[in-house]
Design a protein around this nucleic acid. Sequence first.
DNA 1: TGAGTTAGAATGGCACCACCCGTC
DNA 2: GACGGGTGGTGCCATTCTAACTCA
Lengths: 209, 209, 209, 209
Amino acid sequence: MIITVASFKGGVGKTTTALHLAGYLQGRGSTLLIDADYNRSASRWAERGKLPFRVVEDGSSQNVLSGFRPNHVVIDAPARPTPEELKALAERGDLLVLPTTPDTLSLAALESAMTLLAGIHGLRYRVLLTITPPYPSQAAEKAREELEQAEISLFGRDIPRAVALQKAADAGSLVSEVRAPRALLCWLAYCAIGNELTEILLESWLEGG
Amino acid sequence: MIITVASFKGGVGKTTTALHLAGYLQGRGSTLLIDADYNRSASRWAERGKLPFRVVEDGSSQNVLSGFRPNHVVIDAPARPTPEELKALAERGDLLVLPTTPDTLSLAALESAMTLLAGIHGLRYRVLLTITPPYPSQAAEKAREELEQAEISLFGRDIPRAVALQKAADAGSLVSEVRAPRALLCWLAYCAIGNELTEILLESWLEGG
Amino acid sequence: MIITVASFKGGVGKTTTALHLAGYLQGRGSTLLIDADYNRSASRWAERGKLPFRVVEDGSSQNVLSGFRPNHVVIDAPARPTPEELKALAERGDLLVLPTTPDTLSLAALESAMTLLAGIHGLRYRVLLTITPPYPSQAAEKAREELEQAEISLFGRDIPRAVALQKAADAGSLVSEVRAPRALLCWLAYCAIGNELTEILLESWLEGG
Amino acid sequence: MIITVASFKGGVGKTTTALHLAGYLQGRGSTLLIDADYNRSASRWAERGKLPFRVVEDGSSQNVLSGFRPNHVVIDAPARPTPEELKALAERGDLLVLPTTPDTLSLAALESAMTLLAGIHGLRYRVLLTITPPYPSQAAEKAREELEQAEISLFGRDIPRAVALQKAADAGSLVSEVRAPRALLCWLAYCAIGNELTEILLESWLEGG
DNA sequence: TGAGTTAGAATGGCACCACCCGTC
DNA sequence: GACGGGTGGTGCCATTCTAACTCA
C-alpha cells in the first residue's frame, strides 16, 4: 500500500507520523519511506540513528533502489502543498494521512484546505490529531467534535504530546526503541493508527473491487 | 522600524510572535502588520477579534493604506522561505526575528538554514525560542546552549508554552487581553522581547551611523 | 473457552494471572471468573474495586448465575492441588495455565509436579513465568532454558515484576486501569498471553476436529 | 525451644525463614528442622548442599532420630493450614512465626486468618515481614503500620528481598555461606530475628513460670 | 610467571518524590 | 483552593568489566 502524509501547516508531527507509520508497516512487509519534504527532516532522522526501513529522498536517482520492490511505501509529502500538488499526492497513493494539532490555527488551516479537497472525486483520507496535550486539557476532544461536525473523517485515536517522541527524534529511532516514560503508549497509538489504516484500505478494496 | 518574522519550519509560533510584537510596538507608535503567509493565519486571527493595530495582506492593493504612514511595520513572512526570499526579507527590514521551538527537528532546520544566511553581509537577526515546555524540562536550556555554541544570536528570553496563547488565538486578541492562568507572563515575555528588539536597533543605529 | 489457572506453590501470581486473563477474555466475550481458591483472594480483589467481569466463588449456589451464560470461564484453582484434583481441573477446562516464578524452589515444585501430569493423556497446559525480576537479572532466561530442557511447554512471554500489579491489587482493578510506571507494559504482557492462548486453542480445535 | 513457621499464603519465604532460624539456633545448641510442608522444599534444599543441622520429614519414622535429642526444633509447617491445624501447631511449639510479604494479598490473608487465632488462649506468635522491596519502596513501612494498627505483633526487623537468598537456595546452603552482595545483611537480619525470638521466649518463661 | 580469584568501578534500570501546569 | 497528571531528579539494586592479588 502507498500512504501519503501531508499537512497544510508545519510543526504538526508530519515527519514523525510518516516515520512511525513506516515503522508499523515494516512489521507487515518491506517498507520504503520517501522523504519529499524540503527540509529533509526524515532523512536527517534516519542519518542520526537506525531505522528498520529504508529512507530515500524524493529526487534521488532511482538506481539506489535497484532491485528493491517494497510492499509498502510511505511518502512524507512537502509541507503546505498547493491544491494541485495535493491532488497529485492523493492520486499517487492509496490513502492520504493529514496530521494536525488541536489548536485553532492548525484547525483553521485544515478546514479551509479541506474545502479544496472536496472537489477531488474518490479521495481517501483521514485526519490524525497529533501532539494532543495531556489531561485535563480538552483541546483534543473539542477539536474532534469540531472536525466531526465539519464532516471530516479522522482516525479514532490521537497521538499524545510526550517527551518520548522528542527523544526518538534525538536518537534517530522510533519511539518503540526509546526508553522514556510514555514511549510505549505513543507506539501503541501509532500501531492503532496503522491497524485502522489497514482496515480502511481493506474495506475500500473489498467494495471498490 | 521594520521587523520581519520568518521561520524555516511551521508550527513554531511565527504568527503569534508577529502579532504580539506588533501589539507591543503599537504601544510605541502606530504599527502595521503585513500578513505575507500563504495561509493567512494573521488575517484570520484579526478577523476573529479585535487587535489594536492594522493587519493587511501582502498582496493587497496599496490603496487600503491610503494616507496611513505607520511608525512601525511587522511582516509575517511566508513559511520556509528560500535563501533568496530570506535575503530579500532581511534587506527589506531592520531586523529578522526567527522563532523556533527547542525540539531537535526545528533546531536542525534552523541551523542548516543559518549556514545559508552566513553569507549575507550585515544581516541583523535574532532567534527566539518559543513554546518552551515548563519545569522541569530542560529542553529550552539545552537548545539555548546548542545555539550559542553555534554562535547564533538569540533573544535573552523565551516564550513559554501556555494555554493562554491558545486562548488568545481562539479569541482573536492579544494574550494581554485574555483571562488565563499565565497570560500576563506570556505578555511580559513578549514585552521583554520588544524591549530587547528596540535596544538592538538603537545600538545598531548608533554604531552604524 | 474454559481456562484453569493452577499452581503448585503459592505467591506466584496465580490470582493475578487469573484476573487479568479474565479481563482480557472479557474483551472478546462475556467472561466469568470462578474463585476456587480457599483464601478468596480473587473475590476480595473484586470487592475492593470494579472489575469488568463477574466473579463468583466456587461453592456459591448456582442461582446467582441465573440466566448468565458466559462465553469464557476462568477458574482460579485452589493452591497446591493433589494430582487427582489437578487431573480433574485439567479435564474440566480447555487449557491449564501454570504460573511460576523463576526461583529455584518454585521451579523444583513445578518440575516435580509435572512428572505427575505426564501421565494425563491429552493434557493441554502452558507454564507462565511470572514476577520476573527486571534487567539485568537473568533469572527468567535461566528458568526458561531449564524448563525448555525439561520439555515443558511455556508461554512465549513473561509477566514482569512491577509495582503496577501491586497497585492494581490495592485498587481492586486490573493493571490496565492503574496509573503506574509500567502498568501498560504489564497489561500488554497479559494481552500477549491471551493472544497466545487463543491461538493454542484454535490450533488444537482445528486439528482435534 | 520449639519454633513453628507457618503461613496462610505461599511464596512468602516460609521455608527460607525456617531454615535460617534453624541455622541461627544451631549456633546455640543442636537443632532439628522438621519439614512438614507437602512439597518438601526444605528437604530438597538440604539435599542440594550442606546445612549445619539435621532436616527430617514430618512423616518419617522416628528411628532416624534414634539417640538424637536436639536442644531446639524448628517446624516448617504445611502451607495454608486450617484453623484446627494451626491451633495444633501453636500448641505443639513455643512460638509461632508467621512470615508474610508486604503486599495486599498476603496481608489480607494474614489479617483474616489472625481473627481465627484470636480465640486461641495464650497463643504466642510473631509476624515476620519478608521479601521487603528495597528503597525507595515504602511497602514494608506501610505494611508494618497496617499490622500494628490491627494490633498484630510483629518482629522488629524485616527480611529484605535480595538475590543472596536465591543463591542460597540454589546452593543448598544458608545465606551466611553464600558470596553475594547482600548476603551478610540478610544473615544479620535473620540473626536479629533469632535474638528477638529468644528474648520473647525468655520473657514469657520468666512471667509464665 | 601464569591462572584463578576477588575487590572495585561503571552501567542500566526501577521506584519514589518534588515541582509545576491546567481544570474544576 | 484542590486535584490529577506529566516530567525530571535521586537513590539504590543487580550485573559486568577491569584490575590487582594470591598461590602454585
